[in-house]
Design a protein around this nucleic acid. Structure first.
Lengths: 182, 182
DNA sequence: GTCATTTGTTCGCCATAATGAACGGTTGTA
DNA sequence: TACAACCGTTCATTATGGCGAACAAATGAC
């Protein structure tokens, strides 16, 4: 893939996405439309000033012009299914939770040992926690709905009420993502 | 930041990183050293053919020349990190990454087996991935900055460029949180 | 139908990016 | 010291990217 083709495709892709005509884009970017015409047809070797003007007029970042067109697989997968990208037998991904807009998700690694259960005070209203157990066994969750998690298990629960973490085996480790409203 | 300065810095940064002299780079790229001299001093408006030759000679990807600095990665080993709320000896929590406003974080559980490395195509611009290894050993990250992760290790890297997941042990499992701009 | 407008392309001219030689400065070696 | 080999910069020449005018084709208004 030569840079000419790369940019030719990128310019046209972004231009059509914005519904701009070649002439209109030329006007916005203060470029001759002949220049754009040549670039989109792959005949050309533009300078970065020219590209910069194009990127600005297209309202995209500079490096966008050098990216291959995105099939947008991730977003489609997220809304649709559980298991994705299992074309390789050696590879399997499971979507555990997609992120609602207007939320924050802070990521914690939690190491705990058997002993006194850790009781967490309620977090702000609307808070959720996502726990994925890595190693060991743990009992996790709000008071009326604790669950015993084994490695790989995923559990999401409201964290705006009292909840516990209790290791049932030594060397228990889990990932906890705390989700709060913005 | 004008593109001239951006590229001027990038070329010199990558050139010095490889320990190349300006003259040597010019020879490798089939360019006049006067051209490189002008570019590195910010006086210039190079064509993409010129930049392409430079990127090839520097053995970096094309878009590397437009990046402000190195890939914005963060690595927290299993025994590292800022520990919070460790009042109990049996309990330890590590904040791996707090969530910037206006972002989405989707959570995946990834199971993979040794074999062909899984190469991921770039996600939309500004995407980051957070990987926490649960069991096994994996090599993860963007092409220029892969890291070998052991259980408990946390690695954050830009995912808007090609990156890989490769299991180095059977039964490798990790959590991947994909972070995208809203 | 006619005319006006807009589309993207092609061509000659001009500004300029890339060139190569010459330059001064620095390092290393006999 | 003298000399060679390298460094990066500067400058006149040359190749070429960007420009505007002219162009044919498609579209819309009346």
């Amino acid at each position: 893939m030569t840079p000419n083709d790369l940019i030719a495709n990128a310019i046209q892709r972004e231009r059509l996405r914005k519904g701009l005509s070649l002439s209109a884009l030329a006007a916005n970017a203060n470029l001759a439309k002949s220049t754009l015409s040549q670039l989109e047809s792959g005949k050309g070797n533009p300078s970065i000033e020219t590209l910069w003007a194009i990127a600005a007029a297209l309202e995209v970042t500079f490096s966008t012009l050098f990216e291959v067109s995105k099939p947008d697989v991730s977003l489609v997968r997220a809304n649709e299914g559980d298991t994705v990208g299992s074309d390789h037998a050696t590879y399997q991904t499971t979507l555990l939770a997609n992120c609602p807009p207007g939320t924050r998700r802070d990521i914690y690694r939690v190491d705990l040992e058997p002993g006194t259960p850790r009781r967490s005070t309620p977090h702000p209203n609307g808070t959720y926690e996502h726990a994925i157990l890595c190693t060991g066994v743990a009992r996790v969750g709000p008071l009326e709905a604790e669950e015993t998690l084994s490695p790989g298990d995923y559990y999401r629960y409201p964290a705006d009420r009292p909840h516990v973490y209790e290791a049932l085996e030594p060397g228990t480790r889990m990932i906890v993502i705390m989700e709060t409203k913005d």
